[in-house]
């Protein structure tokens, strides 16, 4: 495992002495460089997360001291219809949006990994929406999805009459119909897969060329190449990105739902757990209750990771190294 370390017991004594000093020094330097991040991680993420977990078992309104509540908040969550809707919306979003985002990112990576005219511009265009600040991105979509004056519906009306599409149907009511609004949030999330795209692009470009050359010699079809070579070789990266995206999907619905749909249209069509937690904690001052909902989010995250981990292990059995 540590072939290059040079600190094994069989190394010459002088070698050990020479190697130990730079190692100890570099470790100290690494520790120092890591320290600010670790301080931030502990102080701004881990400790608040632990405190939030503890507050999930209290009645706490951000103002008066917390009072022990046992499992009252969790019991109340189970009976809360708005929480159940938020939980369902979150799970549906994750199940639909994560595979779509992965597919889109993979498709673009496979399409744009070669040197070709316009490929660089296309790569930049695929990455650009990720660089737009979240609130600005939300406000942009608020305009794009405007039911009457928005460009999306204007385009859909081309060829139609009396405000209908060319197929004679009413264009999607992105902000007023529950199903269309959920679709709009998923649509918005698709264009922010830039990071996933970049990682997959790098992964694809790192694949060995000779494997593809051998496949070409054997007249393998494009589908075969994808199924037998590209997918298995990229599977570890894809799996890692899928886990990351599944975790992220639990919270990146917040800004679109907050800015574009405000959790609606009624009843709570785009109220996701993240928005539910924010409203309950900071607008209604039920912080203990919101902390319990956060606990559920964390459990969901853990469950998503475990399920995907098992799937990856099962996949590896088919493609042993």
């Amino acid at each position: 495992m540590s072939a290059g370390s040079g600190t094994g017991p069989r190394a010459p004594a002088t070698g050990v002495g020479r190697a130990a000093r730079p190692d100890a020094r570099s470790r100290r330097q690494l520790a120092l460089m890591l320290a600010p991040y670790l301080v931030g991680l502990v102080g701004l993420v881990l400790l608040p997360a632990l405190v939030t977990l503890a507050l999930a078992f209290t009645h706490y309104d951000l103002v008066r001291p917390p009072a022990w509540a046992g499992f009252d908040n969790v019991t109340a969550l189970v009976e809360d219809p708005i929480f159940r809707i938020a939980l369902t919306n979150t799970l549906v979003f994750a199940v639909v949006a994560v595979p779509l985002r992965m597919l889109l990112a993979l498709g673009l990576a496979l399409l744009l990994h070669r040197r070709a005219p316009g490929a660089g511009t296309a790569r930049a265009a695929a990455l650009l929406p990720t660089a737009v600040p979240e609130i600005a991105y939300g406000l942009l979509w608020l305009w794009l999805l405007n039911p009457l004056y928005g460009p999306v519906n204007q385009v859909l009306r081309v060829g139609g009459e009396n405000g209908l599409t060319a197929l004679g149907r009413t264009p999607p009511q992105w902000l007023t119909d529950p199903t269309d609004a959920r679709a709009a949030i998923i649509l918005m999330s698709l264009f922010t897969m830039g990071e996933t795209f970049v990682v997959l692009l790098a992964a694809r470009r790192a694949l060995p060329r000779d494997v593809y050359e051998m496949a070409a010699v054997e007249d393998a079809t494009g589908w075969d190449v994808f199924r037998r070579i590209t997918l298995p070789l990229m599977a570890p990266v894809l799996a890692l990105l899928a886990v990351r995206d599944a975790i992220a999907s639990l919270h990146f619905t917040f800004v679109p739902a907050f800015v574009v749909t405000d959790g609606g249209p009624p009843p709570y069509a785009t109220t996701y757990l993240s928005l539910f937690v924010y409203q309950t904690g900071f607008e209604y001052l039920r912080y203990g209750y919101a902390a319990a909902a956060t606990l559920v989010m964390m459990v969901l995250t853990l469950a998503a990771v475990l399920v995907q981990w098992r799937l990856i292990r099962r996949y590896r059995r088919f493609y042993p190294r």
């Binding site: 405007n146 039911p147 009457l148 004056y149 928005g150 009511q173 902000l175 007023t176 249209p265």
Partner: peptide, 8 residues
């Protein structure tokens, strides 16, 4: 309508 209110 609700769509008109959302639009403006």
């Amino acid at each position: 309508s609700d769509a008109e209110v959302e639009a403006e």
